[in-house]
Computed example of a mutant assay.
Amino acid sequence: MAHEGGRARFHRLRVAAVDRLTDDSVALTLAVPPELREAYRFTPGQHLALRRTVDGAEIRRTYSICSTAPAHEAPSSLRVGVRLVDDGAFSTYAHKEIAVGDELEVMTPAGRFTLDPNPAADTAASGSAPAPTSGHYAAVVGGSGITPVLSIAGTLLEQAPDARFCLIRSDRSTASTMFLEEVADLKDRYPDRFQLVTVLSREEQQAGLASGRLDEERLTALLPALLPMERVAGWYLCGPYGLVQSAERALRALGVRRERVHEEIFHVDDGGQDRDRVAAPTPAHSTVTAQLDGRSGSWPVQDGESLLEAVLRNRPDAPYACKGGVCGTCRAFLVSGSIRMDRNFALEAEETEAGYVLACQSHPTTEKVELDFDR
């Protein structure tokens, strides 16, 4: 992955194509020049942060890569899906202004919602066991949650001839469904290894499942009827908070081990926060020490600001994208001190147990806190 062994950085990439997918979504294809291709080598499921400045204010948004990852060489292009959101500062710009030939500031790939079909090289370096890439894999996605899973499924089916993939996708209607043609192409190319189940919440289908939401009860009944549950090596849940939580609870009820379930949340709102959590007290005077690109510094944390905000006041190059606890770009290792995180929709339980935090959601609960962004 591009960010391994070096922190993610921005480069200017040229827009090679703008494809309208639905009335409210487009796909942007970005050309990667030869000298930057290694920097943009990605693992299926990762995302890109796009940056622009408006009236002196910097705007960053993350969009998942939907391209199939090349088997051996680094990519010459990257494709991302952008869905229009109400009053979205970047998505409105993408839909109304971005044109072929424009240059965009694009961060190198990041994110851990991934499945690597060829983990052998990473295994040798890390000493860990490779992820299995034979057998069954499955995903439950909603709306634009299809974007990273399209990359995961396409790359896996192309590079792991023994693998099978089941995609359960939920959309409002056929007209609002992103990447219809690309998913249909997977079905045509891998008819015996790719299983597609489509559920529309606001439109009746002539065949297939009845319309309606995919809630916990429905998924608990549906999944064992579709798949040999004990043989599914990995589950990928991506989409709105409610759908992902329903799918996670259904899998837990069906006895699926936690380490086989991977989640990425899109469209988090206040309903995704723990309203009953009692916040730990914040010291009157706190200092954060941060290791970043081999350089360390210590700075005061002002009242109410996150550790990321304190670092950014002094190190504008600190990594971040969404500032909402979703993308995981600001992931850092907590070396010393203690913090509270307002929300976390990016780190796996194993990561938090190992000591990693999201700097954008972290507030000090001790007078001194030390973070390491380089680990």
Rank of each mutant, 00 (worst) to 15 (best):
P132K: 13
L186R: 02
Q159K: 00
L167H: 04
S173L: 05
G143P: 02
S151M: 06
P148F: 06
H136N: 05
R172F: 03
S151E: 07
S176R: 13
G127S: 11
L156Y: 08
L186G: 01
P130S: 15
F179P: 11
V141H: 11
P130E: 12
G154L: 04
S173Y: 02
Y137C: 09
S134H: 14
R164C: 11
P161Y: 04
S173F: 07
R172A: 12
Y137G: 04
R189L: 10
P148I: 00
A163G: 06
A163I: 02
L156G: 02
G143K: 09
E182K: 15
G135C: 10
V140K: 06
E181Y: 12
T174R: 15
K187D: 14
T177Q: 15
I168S: 00
A131T: 14
R189G: 00
S128Q: 13
L167R: 01
P132E: 10
A160K: 11
L180F: 14
A153F: 06
F165K: 01
T177D: 10
Y137D: 05
A131H: 10
E158A: 15
S144H: 09
A131N: 04
A163V: 03
G143L: 09
D185F: 08
S151F: 05
D171I: 01
S151Y: 03
P130Y: 11
G142S: 07
A184G: 10
L150C: 10
S176C: 04
A129S: 12
E181F: 13
V149P: 00
G143Q: 09
P191G: 06
T177G: 07
V141Y: 09
R164T: 08
S173T: 15
A184I: 10
I146R: 08
A129N: 07
R172N: 03
E182S: 15
S126V: 05
R172C: 04
P148V: 02
I168L: 14
L150R: 07
A125V: 14
I152D: 00
A138Y: 07
G135R: 11
G135D: 12
I168N: 07
D171T: 06
A160S: 15
A163Q: 03
P161S: 06
I146F: 09
D185P: 01
T133V: 12
L180R: 15
